[in-house]
Amino acid sequence: MASADSRRLGDGDGAGGAFQPYLDSLRQELQQRDPTVLSVVVALLAVLLTLVFWKLVRSRRSSQRAVLLLGLCDSGKTLLFVRLLTGHYRDTQTSITDSSATYRVNNNRGNSLTLIDLPGHESLRLQFLERFKTSARAVVFVVDSAAFQREVKDVAEFLYQVLIDSMSLKNTPSFLIACNKQDIAMAKSAKLIQQQLEKELNTLRVTRSAAPSTLDSSSTAPAQLGKKGKEFEFSQLPLKVEFLECSAKGGRGDPGSADIQDLEKWLAKIA
């Protein structure tokens, strides 16, 4: 009996009408003053309330406490994730799914954030971005500084997508572009990466607006990035975009060698 009840509740949250005959029979039995029925009803109510309460608490906590690690494949997101959490070095493979963990910020308030490492592969990244973007408090966009010259078009394209998406959110997240792999000799500096990205995004604005419309007719005009008729700059955006250099790998196996202090400071700031 109890299980049947709760199943009904579970199945038909929205359909109130379906309960009507059920409620009637309940009332009838209540009038017979059967204590078991009453206790069952009370128990059910308690369970329901707990569920609702639990859900509320959960949704509140997860909202806007997440820091998303985004970027192309092989830019070092997962290693950065590991370094931030443990400080150790770990071998990594291409991620197939997201991984998340609570990150304790080292400032005096002792806040905690949820770090979420998203897969960077082309066929997955947009799906995962879609899933997690609403809970983002901050976005860390990781760029491989050593291979930047080769990947600049792909980086810009993904960055364009992320920027458009995060601008359309209700509370825009803080945005950081982390120029990773600074330990490699040929790595580009953050300054240069910023310039190149601005130039690339500028052309991307043109080509994107000229692309043929998509299949479904409901598509609205895409949001414009930056000011019209002006060369694109990150300062034109409604959200603040910061750049910093870091190196997640450093000397292998040595916990102190990674150069991620700036990133930790930034995370402490936004927490």
């Binding site: 997962t78 990594t92 493979q93 991620s95 197939i96 799914t97 991984s99 490492d117």
Partner: peptide
């Protein structure tokens, strides 16, 4: 042996 999240 690695996790789907990419950790070996």
């Amino acid at each position: 042996i690695f996790s789907k999240g990419g950790l070996v």
